[in-house]
Simulated scan of single mutants.
Amino acid sequence: MIESLILICSVVLGVICSKLFLKNKHNSKLLLTFSGAFFLAMTVLEILPQVYGHPSTDHTNHTIGLFVLFGVVIQYILETISKGVEHGHIHLHKNESFPIGIFGGLFLHSIIEGIPVANAESHNFMWAIFVHNIPVSMILFSALSQHTASNTKRFIFMLLFALAAPMGYFLGKHTLISNYSLEMSAIVSGIFLHISTVILFETNEGHHFNIKKFISILIGFVLAYFIVSMHTHAH
């Protein structure tokens, strides 16, 4: 239950940050860069080692790696529907209404992300999604504010998005999907790898060295390492 509440809070925090940070695009990009770095580090330091180090993983073949690659493919398909909201941008014409398809792709993406949280060995999986949801919620709420006139529709869209990851958690905990928790973790790690690397590449405009973005990346890496290390020492 606490996991669902934390994931919902990440969306609420994203809406608040949207009002505070999106007025300054530079600040929002730094936050996005940080989230991408944190996301990538958590995947490499925590999620992938758990997937490949699991007792049921057959180390004589590469089957589990296929699930990771499958996650990359799934994310590629999902972002053609969501138009890349997952990694921090959305392109709509000024007078264009908010497309339902974009929300549908993002909603499905969030459900899939939430599934492995139910059977993860630690809360680090959940915190990775928490951090990632903040800039995604910022972009989504900003797009809804610009392209949806009805406050009621904005609220419904954001409420549904906030419930998506908890829905995934429920599916991973109380349905037959729970029997495939390792495979789902592998798939979601592939999704994480795709999103985080795209975020870091896209925020490096013109391939020029930017000290503020570089520091944001380092902070993301260090924070992820600190969180993973705390969990390791606790055991």
Rank of each mutant, 00 (worst) to 15 (best):
R154M: 05
V136N: 09
F155A: 12
L176M: 10
T148K: 04
F141V: 10
F98M: 01
I100T: 14
N151R: 07
M126I: 10
F170P: 14
I111W: 11
F157N: 00
P99V: 03
V136A: 04
M158F: 11
P135E: 03
I129L: 04
I134T: 11
A162D: 03
A164I: 12
A120M: 08
M126P: 03
N119F: 14
E113L: 14
H123M: 09
H147Q: 04
S150I: 00
L106T: 03
K153T: 02
M138S: 04
I139H: 01
H123I: 11
G105S: 11
L159N: 08
M158C: 07
A164C: 09
L159M: 01
K153W: 04
G114E: 06
S145E: 06
I129C: 07
F141N: 06
A120H: 02
Q146I: 10
N133S: 07
I129F: 02
S122L: 01
T175L: 05
L106N: 04
V117C: 02
I112S: 08
F103I: 05
F125M: 14
F107L: 15
H109K: 14
G172D: 09
N133V: 08
G104M: 13
T175V: 15
S142R: 11
I156E: 00
N124T: 06
M138Q: 05
S145T: 05
Q146T: 09
M167E: 14
V131T: 07
E113H: 14
M167R: 15
S110C: 13
K173S: 15
F107S: 10
A149F: 09
F107V: 15
L163A: 15
T152Q: 04
V131I: 15
S97C: 02
S122M: 02
N133L: 04
F141P: 07
L108P: 15
M126Y: 00
I112M: 11
I156V: 05
M158Q: 03
S110H: 13
F141M: 06
N151S: 06
N119K: 15
P135H: 10
A128D: 09
E113Q: 13
H147S: 02
G104L: 14
L140A: 02
A164G: 05
A149V: 13
P99K: 04
H147I: 02
T152S: 03
K173M: 13
L160V: 10
S137T: 01
L144F: 05
M138W: 06
G104D: 12
F103L: 05
L163N: 08
F170D: 09
A149N: 08
P166L: 05
M138R: 03
I139F: 03
M167W: 12
P116I: 13
M158I: 08
M158N: 03
P116E: 12
F98L: 07
A143R: 00
